[in-house]
Design a protein around this nucleic acid. Structure first.
Lengths: 164, 164
DNA sequence: TATTTCGGTTGTATAATACATATATTGTCT
DNA sequence: AGACAATATATGTATTATACAACCGAAATA
């Protein structure tokens, strides 16, 4: 009852379609002339700041699954554009606290509006039911990815301190 | 009437989750030590050749939504690795016909098996029903993207020859 | 036959990324 | 307190994937 049909074909399809989805999204990256556009990492970074409030560079790297050096450069790029501001943590001089500027918040919202318009048009003939369901599936899928990554990190940590 | 419930939240969620999905997939690109691994474009390119048979460089570029120069370089890279072979078209000296080698076919299948294993583990607690449904949604989503791109190209063409 | 179009390649530039190393601050141990 | 280790971030360097522009040779067309 739990596997009425062998789901391997479905998994194959999912895997293939995700590859295609990702490939296409890369091709959109450069092709955009939308002035509101923010590249994906910038968009996600600002989005995390909108949702989470102040974060450190390291936390951003962790959320975005970026090397901290990459996160650091992105933070600086956004700072140069005036979208975020760094302030030193008063308690710990090593830490930079990263905040949105008002400009950053507005740019994020503008970009989000743009994206939503695009997606709304793209998905215009989907039923509300299907949209909700797809959203839920994607959340679940991302969650699964996230857990599998956490798990492998955990294993790594344990390996590094075996006699703990 | 066209929006019985406000699906904006669902669309927002979808858009956000796709961003996350894509970001994560990029972080996997470099992190892999899987020897069977093929980078995404190579994987898709070989996959198209498996499914479609012989293709030209231009067709590959079109399928992959790559600039033809990029496709050309990728073809050469795969040729250098012995995974594909180019033969000149006997009827039209400009065209290179791109084919899989036996080695290429096997590498593709190995990579596919690897991917499937990973996805099967990732999705192990999904019901067959959900897997099938997610696959269908992804196909539909990619199809929508594809059509919207075709549409915008068509408009562009019409703009270029206005008095047609 | 001269010109244009077409398929593909090569030159060049850019962006996003990771890894190794450096720097400065904080924590810890004797 | 002083020395050393750990931590948070930044910088140097290399790689990779990509696009655009310029080019080349073959084919189509005027």
């Amino acid at each position: 009852m739990e596997e009425p049909l062998p789901p391997m074909e479905a998994i194959d399809l999912i895997q293939q379609q995700i590859s295609i989805l990702i490939r296409r999204s890369e091709s959109e990256r450069t092709a955009q002339q939308d002035t509101n556009r923010l590249d994906r990492s910038a968009y996600l970074m600002l989005g995390f700041l909108v949702n989470e409030g102040t974060l450190t560079v390291g936390q951003l790297a962790e959320f975005l699954q970026l090397d901290i050096s990459t996160a650091s450069r992105q933070v600086r790029a956004l700072e140069d554009k005036g979208l975020i501001a760094r302030t030193p943590d008063p308690r710990d001089g090593r830490i930079s606290r990263v905040d949105l500027t008002e400009e950053g918040r507005q740019r994020f919202l503008a970009a989000k509006t743009s994206r939503l318009r695009r997606y709304r048009q793209l998905l215009s003939d989907w039923s509300a039911q299907d949209l909700t369901q797809l959203g839920a599936y994607l959340v679940r899928l991302n969650q699964a990815y996230y857990e599998s990554i956490r798990y492998s990190h955990k294993q790594l940590d344990e390996r590094e301190e075996p006699g703990r």
